[in-house]
Nucleic acid binder design. Structure first.
Lengths: 202, 202
DNA sequence: CGTCGCATTGATATCGCTCAAATCCGGTGG
DNA sequence: CCACCGGATTTGAGCGATATCAATGCGACG
């Protein structure tokens, strides 16, 4: 991996935070932490992608959040004693782990950092509510289109398919079979286009 | 209404915030703001209850959040130019409206307030993700039980039914008919108990 | 007393879930 | 190079749960 592939450390974060981070590598499907674990770190994704998931009684997985390169995750754990979900590496990933108590300290001492942290949480909250809105849609097609409209980039609302379609199905609260059929129908009807590794409106 | 009925101003919030608030009364079904409106205020519920909703293309309403007495809402709008959903009074309500720019200023100047605001956002984020988890459950009964487990208080996870069951159905992402039938079945099976204005595990 | 909205129940249809099977593809080992 | 394997992808058949449409009772409120 080249340096060019690696995202720069978010430029708007204080230099004081950087040295606190310890770099750790994870393999696909590794658990960074599990529900109930004591909160020791918050994380920044240097490379790869993680998902935060809970598991229903029947064992089915529900992805609450996806964290990609350059994004923090487990920020909501800062005020909690233990993690409330599992963090799973969707692919091989490199993280920076920041000790939670030191981040708390920095939040208390560095107003600029606190202000940035507020902005971060606000974005996360928006994203979570958008996901609520999406899951409240009853039809699979509506959820896919909502996903494209809210997560997509560019004139055709394209989204990169980083993981498998099964992952996307999990994120949309659908079975993968339903998603396959829905995508096939939307494509047949000329509503969406599918590339090798992306999806977008026609 | 007596003063005893009214919640005190959240004691952990700085005195500096208090004088910024302007008290406004709303009737049931009034819109405090609408999606797309310029963000001018964030709000604290002195009395009553509000919901934040978006509307699907077919006109169906999706409640993203419920704000009750003593709670802030539209905190996530602070960093936005316009509101991203409608705020609707579920019942007659009294609010304190805080000018957004003055709250931003206070966040920049008062580290303690910023720290409290972070705690507030963190709780909201947890709540939103819990709602995501709930909506990802496929059966109506599972959603009801999840609601009781996560929102309920006390040994029987009781929840007060402030609004109508139709409101609850909207919050659970169900039709009211489904909710009625599900509650009837759960009650018949001895899983939940229903009072006049509350719901709990048997 | 009439109206309106909530609560409740019934009948039916539809959509997504479940189980099943076939294909494809990348990786692995002989 | 080829056989094999596991996982993703895809399509099929059938079922069941929820949505939908409809009707009724009920209480509040004017």
């Amino acid at each position: 991996m080249t340096h060019a592939m690696r995202p720069s450390f978010p430029t708007d974060l204080p230099a004081a935070l950087r040295p606190l981070g310890r770099q750790i590598a994870y393999s696909k499907d590794d658990r960074v932490f599990r529900k109930g674990d004591t909160v020791r770190f918050v994380f920044l994704v240097l490379d790869g992608a993680l998902r935060l998931s809970r598991f229903a009684r029947d064992g089915s997985e529900i992805a609450l959040h996806r964290a990609c390169r350059g994004e923090f995750f487990a920020e909501a754990a800062l005020d909690a004693a233990c993690y409330h979900c599992d963090a799973i590496a969707s692919q091989a990933s490199t993280l920076l782990a920041f000790p939670a108590d030191q981040v708390r300290e920095l939040l208390d001492q560095d107003p600029a950092f606190a202000r940035q942290w507020i902005a971060l949480l606000t974005r996360q909250l928006h994203a979570a509510r958008t996901r609520v809105e999406r899951l409240a849609l009853k039809s699979a097609a509506e959820r896919v289109l909502h996903y494209l409209h809210t997560e997509g980039q560019g004139p055709r609302s394209e989204v990169a398919l980083t993981g498998s379609l099964k992952d996307l199905a999990r994120e949309l609260g659908l079975t993968h079979e339903s998603l396959y059929r829905t995508l096939a129908r939307l494509q047949r009807d000329g509503v969406v286009t599918r590339g090798e590794h992306d999806l977008g409106l026609a």
